[in-house]
């Protein structure tokens, strides 16, 4: 199961909430089939950017294109089914078991039981989720297990696009470390277009080919992580990198 990653293009995208401009005239083209980390301080607009991709938010002006097609004329339900989406707290449905959470959409699409089971087993192995966790409800799972279930749910239909909004943000460092390694191998294996929102430069550098550093609704620099360190676009980038330096050293 390999699918080419979708091409996402932001064209002069601006998002305002009343007087507040969350995104200011962003033009950006993350590499299809690669992982791009979107990073920046709280409130810089990185989560807003992610939500534009599948129409959870609509740009006030400008456009978002998916494989060259304007989102405004795209069937959003169809697009969302070709997109995996993982939230910081997992966004699991509390009234459904882990297995039901993961299989809700494919069941609605009429997948036969055997196919559901096979895919579930495959993904549980890929995400290293203990088998007995599938029968449990979200409230009965650990934070790390919840995120693994969310990843299984996101990957179930083998979508060409994966959006992750601080997927590891709520985990304790040890679990987080393990999950980072798992995500890295998953991304490497699947060749999807991945947009990963994080506020941790080390995580970005570890998981992504490219980093988009944002500040106050603007893209400050879009480059591979090493370039961010060696050739910061301005003082803000330098300061941001310096502040997170100690984390960087752990992996470079």
């Amino acid at each position: 199961m390999t699918t080419l990653g979708l091409a996402v293009t932001f064209e002069n995208a601006t998002v305002s909430f009343g007087d507040v401009t969350a995104l200011d005239n962003i033009s950006l083209e993350p590499k299809p089939g690669a992982t791009t980390a979107i990073i920046g301080p709280s409130g810089c607009g990185k989560s807003t950017l992610l939500r534009l991709v599948i129409g959870l938010l609509t740009p006030t002006s400008g456009r978002v294109l998916i494989d060259g097609k304007d989102l405004a004329s795209t069937d959003l339900t169809e697009l969302r089914r070709r997109t995996g989406f993982v939230l910081q707290d997992g966004g699991l449905f509390p009234h459904l078991t882990a297995a039901s959470n993961a299989t809700l959409l494919p069941r609605r699409l009429g997948w036969p039981i055997e196919r559901l089971k096979a895919r579930l087993d495959e993904l549980a192995e890929l995400t290293r989720l203990p088998a007995d966790a599938l029968a449990r409800y979200p409230a009965e799972l650990s934070g790390g297990q919840r995120q693994r279930v969310a990843v299984i749910r996101a990957l179930f239909l083998d979508p060409p696009l994966l959006l992750l909004d601080e997927p590891l943000g709520a985990l304790d460092p040890l679990v987080r470390h393990g999950m980072q390694a798992d995500l890295r191998s998953i991304f490497a294996e699947l060749n999807k277009t991945v947009l990963l929102v994080t506020h941790d430069l080390a995580e970005a550098a570890y998981l992504a080919e490219d980093v988009v550093l944002m500040k106050d609704g603007d893209v400050v620099q879009h480059a591979p992580p090493s370039e961010l360190v060696r050739k910061p676009a301005n003082d803000f980038v330098r300061d941001f990198v310096t502040a997170q330096r100690s984390h960087m050293e752990a992996i470079t």
Binding site: R80, R81, F93, P94, R108, R153
Partner: peptide, 13 residues
């Protein structure tokens, strides 16, 4: 809100 958002993002009708 996160539950509602993930239901929408999942592509459920």
């Amino acid at each position: 809100p996160s539950t509602r958002e993930s239901a929408e993002a999942l592509g459920l009708s």
